[in-house]
Design a protein around this nucleic acid. Structure first.
Lengths: 167, 167
DNA sequence: ATCGCTGCAAAAGTTTTGCAGTCGC
DNA sequence: GCGACTGCAAAACTTTTGCAGCGAT
């Protein structure tokens, strides 16, 4: 056995290989961005990636993170989704396919399996020629808790009386 | 779609009534924000609303627009969706129900009718207790044009020996 | 040695917040 | 008149960009 292979970077070689095949230069920064996303196993903001990478490569710069994410997205290795929290969420393609339920009221986020989407996706593809959520999807709505509460959460001072609004 | 009422006195009285019922103060600024959204008939950014209102109420301030939109969203009169274009999109609840297909490649945006979503929505509601996209939904994917142009099917790593996009 | 990539810094754009004055109720 | 609401200004953030130098190939 050559060297014991830490489970922390089981995919480094794979990532490097991908860069090479795409004709892109292999840099420590780029590989680390992919490793960060792989380590998280889910979605991360640019800032979260920044901090993860900075622990291994302190000279990293946030602009580089953004440029790398932009590049990775454009070649299809990473998905970017705006889930309404101010900062975009990035995710490694190939992770377990799932989507996000984002609550418009409380901002809470849940994940749902992809299987639920398949029928709808096929219909969209046929009718609109749009490959919907092949990778990532954000679904806005109202979560269970807020549905039950059905009331304005701590914002409107005198608004706790009738049940208006809905049609 | 149904014929709208005359545009002279659009829905001002209705809007005022809603504020009253919610126990919120009725101000010219708030009513104008709702009128802007009603006039647009679709989604607007905070800045677009700002400019529309400013034509009728020059003293308006962008901070007020944001505070008003925040309030309106929290009481369910307005939806906010982040479609990935930098600024959030706001829309009056009750407009023709539709959703957005946002292309991850070119940023292009298309609208689809709500009917396509109904089955999926019901399944999500039953299984997750989440009222999905009752009002607004963002679906990320790849549009027709980008699909034909630079076909990158799913997650094929070795699919590209073509020179990648280095913007 | 080339030229793509990075770090740095500053800008651009969006959204939030503190505060004093105003206006709806 | 009280207190919610607004205008103003500045801050807090996220993301982008110009440029000089470094480094992968």
């Amino acid at each position: 056995m050559t060297q014991q292979q830490q489970q922390t970077h089981p995919r480094r070689e794979e990532f490097i290989e991908r860069f090479r095949r795409l004709g892109l230069r292999v840099t420590a920064q780029r590989v680390l961005v992919l490793e960060a996303l792989a380590a998280a196993g889910g979605h991360m903001t640019a800032d979260e990636i920044m901090r993860w990478v900075a622990e291994r490569y302190p000279a990293i710069n946030l602009a580089t993170i953004y440029r790398t994410l932009d590049l990775l997205t454009s070649v299809g290795l990473v998905t970017q989704a705006d889930l309404g929290g101010g900062a975009s969420q990035f995710e490694l393609v190939g992770a377990t396919l799932h989507h996000h339920l984002v609550c418009e009221r409380c901002g809470d986020m849940a994940e749902i399996e992809d299987a639920l989407m398949v029928p709808m996706r096929e219909r969209i593809l046929h009718q609109y020629g749009f490959r919907a959520g092949a990778r990532h999807m954000a679904i806005f709505g109202v979560c269970d808790a807020c549905l039950s509460a059905s009331r304005v959460p701590a914002l409107a001072p005198g608004a706790a009386e009738t049940s208006p609004a809905s049609e």
